[in-house]
Structures are given as C-alpha cells and as structure tokens.
Simulated scan of single mutants.
Amino acid sequence: MRKLQVQGVHHITLTGANRQTSIDFWEGVLGMPFIFDQPNLDDPDEGHLYFDPGDGRLITIFTNETRTANRSRTPTDPGCVHHLAFNVSKATFSQAVERLNERGIGHSGPKDRGFMDSIYFKDPMGLMIELACYRFEPPMGCSHADVMIEAHRIRVEASDYNIQEKHLADAIERVVARRQQTLSDDRSPRNPY
C-alpha cells in the first residue's frame, strides 16, 4: 500500500453569495486580487470566481445572483469547516481591530495563541475567518512547520501546556544547529565578557 503524497493546498472552494458581495469581501476586505472568472462548470446557474490569497494558491468562490449574504454562523458539525486562517504581517495584524471596526465588522479582538496572534470574524455567508500572525520567522531555508515540530518537542519535554515564545526561540536554535555547519568544536552558549 502506498500514499498519495500531497504537496500543498491547491485551492479551497467556498459557496458564496452573489458575485459582487463575493468580490467586495475577498478583494475589498481581505485584499486578495480577483484573478480569474468563469462559470461553475458543474452548475450553469453559478459563477466561479478565483482569488489569490497572497501565496499564488487559490481561494475560489461559487456565486449565484439569487443568493444574498447571511452572516449567521456556518455549521460546525463534525466534517464541516470550522474556519479558514490567513497569514498576515505583524504590521497588518496591529491594524486589524481598527480596520474591522471602520467597516462595522464584528470580531473577537486579538487572541494570544502562544506561537501566533489571531483575530476572528465572519465572511458575508457566516464562515469564520481568522487572520493569523506568526510570532517568529523561520531560519533561512526552513519552514514554519520545521520550527513548529521542534517547538512541540521542546514543549512536551518541558511538560508545558502549550507552545510559548521560549519554545520557539529554543526550536529555532536547534533547527539552525542541525541545518548549518560550523567550524567551531563547541557550539554551546558562552559569555565573552
């Protein structure tokens, strides 16, 4: 038996309201360029809009001119999507409350997640959206996942409840030590003063 190895998210497709509401939210609120537009090839009564969330991948929205915005929460039953999280810079995150308030969009306020900061609000169809801002940058040539798995190991070794910034800092040090060779015989911390 062999796996079907995935290599990243290709796209996520959501059921949206009408065309303009969808464009106004995904591009007008979240800043995702509207890059492609065609009919839904499986339903001639629907449109299919494509947006770039910032990494060249795709968020696509099925639209129908008879659907209107309904901000009541989408189902969170087992098997349903709970929320979508999008990466934002620290500069953008620090402006999120003000910018959501300017539009009258209700939100959770900033949430401390240990390794990241988050804020939650709903799209026009009631899907929970999260803006997430990492508290660290991975070393050159490494991914956030490389640091996260090492931080998890450190957290478990310490019997701590959740990942904290100290785990991230130590994880980055370990990742660099494994990835980058040195001419020194001793890489341990020292005091040069």
Rank of each mutant, 00 (worst) to 15 (best):
D170I: 01
N40F: 12
L30E: 04
N87C: 02
V156A: 15
D186A: 03
G106L: 04
R57E: 10
R57N: 15
G54H: 00
V9P: 04
D77G: 10
P39Y: 13
Q5E: 07
Q5A: 12
F62N: 03
F115H: 03
D55N: 15
L4R: 10
M116Y: 08
A96W: 03
L84Y: 07
C133K: 09
T68V: 11
I105T: 05
H83G: 08
R2I: 07
D52C: 08
K3E: 12
D117P: 00
I105S: 01
I59V: 15
M1W: 13
F121P: 04
R2K: 13
I129Y: 09
C80P: 00
M32A: 12
P124N: 11
D37A: 02
E157T: 06
A177G: 05
H107P: 00
I149D: 14
G54V: 04
M128K: 07
G104D: 05
D185I: 01
P189D: 09
M128T: 14
V175E: 08
R57F: 10
H144G: 03
A96T: 13
R178F: 03
P53C: 04
M140Y: 05
F93V: 02
G16H: 07
E165P: 01
H152A: 06
E157Y: 11
L168C: 00
N64W: 08
H10R: 13
H11M: 12
E98I: 03
V88R: 11
P138Q: 01
G28R: 00
R57A: 13
N64D: 14
P138A: 03
S22F: 10
L14C: 01
G16I: 12
R103G: 04
E46K: 12
H107E: 03
T66E: 15
D55S: 12
S184M: 06
F36T: 01
M1L: 14
I23F: 05
E65T: 13
M116H: 08
Y193L: 14
K111P: 03
C80K: 13
N162Q: 14
H10T: 08
L183I: 04
S94N: 14
K111R: 14
G31R: 12
I154Q: 05
E102A: 14
S184I: 05
H10L: 05
E165N: 10
D45E: 14
I23S: 09
T76W: 06
A177I: 05
W26V: 01
L168F: 07
T60H: 07
P44G: 08
C133Y: 11
D37P: 05
M148K: 08
M148P: 04
G56F: 05
D123C: 06
R73Q: 09
Q20I: 08
R155L: 07
D160Q: 11
R67Q: 09
